[in-house]
Design a protein around this nucleic acid. Structure first.
Lengths: 141, 141
DNA sequence: TATTGTTATACTCTATAACTATA
DNA sequence: TATAGTTATAGAGTATAACAATA
């Protein structure tokens, strides 16, 4: 666990504070998902294709901000784990679809994600919770 | 540039939103610091030892949430670049101190950091700015 | 021509284990 | 005994360039 030091200038800078908060939270999230043998990016992909159908690897990458080239080992790993399958759209592209095992794992991922999100929200002062996601998405858009 | 999609469930989850916002901002910050031949962690170290004197490598690591082992190549690189020097405290430990070149580079890093922080703050809706750092530090503590 | 999927590669960051030497 | 510094190593994320095949 990190410890904040009131002499630490960096704690007053939004950028550094954002970086450290995100690192701490993502480390926690990764540990939780690890119990289901999933990485954060794995869970992200399962969530996406659980919501929207007929997405190609490239499209998923665009939504998740992961480059085409880096989607390849990710999708291959999920396919080897039996969680997703490739469904040809035309001779060039394939949709990434959930298998039944993938659907089950997605349910697990959702449970873990909910628990993580609840724990995260619980750490935010109550009066600030409402604007938090709004603010973060303003930074990402 | 990523594009937010209203159909994207992940945008509604604080954890994912935190992750993507942090990634986008840190990528921007890294690019800016790159013009001064610095990484984010380099700039962090310079900032820290510019504020507090006689800190050892381990102590810097604790403040920055970087492990002892990972401080080694970082400090070595800064030393090779002539930005910091090791000042023996006893036969076991050394304080990491700024050289004159390091002091100059710190000034550059501070300018870049300010510009980056200003750009970041500008993207946050005005009514939410006040609680932003407070909220992030609540997640990190 | 532009896009999709892919391979190969390299760099950064992070994590762990183990060792030496000193406090 | 605990801590500081170090080495080695491995995993994960990310970035670029290049290529073939297809839209």
């Amino acid at each position: 666990m990190p410890h904040r030091d009131e002499r630490d200038v960096l704690s007053t800078l939004p950028g550094y504070a954002l970086r450290r908060a995100a690192n701490a939270m993502m480390s926690d999230f990764a540990t939780r998902l690890g119990t289901a043998d999933l990485r954060i990016s794995d869970a992200s992909v399962l969530q996406i294709i659980g919501e929207r159908t007929d997405m190609t690897s490239s499209e998923i990458g665009k939504v998740l901000d992961i480059q085409r080239a880096n989607m390849v080992p990710l999708v291959n790993r999920l396919e080897k784990a039996g969680l997703i399958a490739r469904k040809p759209i035309d001779r060039k592209s394939s949709a990434i679809v959930l298998t039944s095992a993938g659907l089950e794992r997605l349910a697990t991922a959702r449970t873990i994600t909910s628990q993580f999100e609840d724990a995260l929200i619980a750490r935010i002062p109550e009066q600030h919770r409402q604007c938090f996601v709004e603010t973060l998405n303003a930074l990402w858009d």
